[in-house]
């Protein structure tokens, strides 16, 4: 029986929660995430449901990773600004964020990163168009896509803020 498996997959940034659902569905089927790369996921064979997998966007912070390890989580790896953790299901619940404030903060962090990269692409695109460079449209397309992503993330953020106005 195979013990390792590689899956190539593209995930849009606004679907990060669906990515997490997918990784947990894989774990439920006995394939637990073991390492990540650009559009590539490597899994190992485990008991179905042995692990829960979580991901978040965060600046690389070794202190945070050791903090997570103290609480029983295993660090799987990171891809760009996304970090991946897993924890054995029999070691108890595993969530990264347990209240609305920290969920909103996380979305806010993603939104800030998208804004910065989006603006960079926009400026480069405009600058290149003005100087008559043919490939300027590439940056302009990237900028448009990033702004769309920003809109999707902010939509999620608004929904949570609305909820927070009623409860903690």
């Amino acid at each position: 029986m195979e013990t390792r498996k590689t899956v190539w997959k593209w995930v849009w940034v606004w679907n990060f929660d669906k990515e997490e659902d997918w990784l947990n569905a894989m774990a439920m089927n006995g394939w637990t995430l073991d390492s990540v790369g650009f559009c590539v996921y490597h899994f190992v064979r485990t008991e179905p449901g042995e692990y829960n997998v979580r991901l978040e966007m965060r600046k690389y912070d070794p202190e945070y990773i050791s903090f997570m390890q103290e609480t029983g989580a295993e660090y799987i790896g990171r891809m760009m600004m996304w970090i991946y953790f897993r924890k054995r299901a029999d070691e108890g619940n595993f969530d990264l964020f347990s209240d609305l404030d920290s969920k909103i903060n996380h979305l806010n962090k993603i939104a800030r990163v998208l804004t910065v990269i989006g603006c960079m692409n926009l400026f480069i695109g405009i600058f290149n168009s003005l100087s008559g460079l043919r490939l300027a449209w590439i940056n302009l397309c990237c900028a448009t896509l990033l702004m769309y992503a920003l809109g999707r993330i902010q939509g999620k953020e608004e929904a949570l803020k609305k909820e927070r106005s009623l409860r903690e």
Binding site: E70, T71, F97, S98, S102, H106
Partner: peptide, 25 residues
């Protein structure tokens, strides 16, 4: 950190569970 998570769960009879990312922040 982990001690805080356990204490919180104990004090609230398992109702409140602090997630590690929330706690760290």
């Amino acid at each position: 950190g982990y001690g805080i998570m356990q204490m919180t769960e104990e004090l609230s009879n398992g109702r409140v569970r602090l997630a590690a990312g929330t706690l760290y922040g």
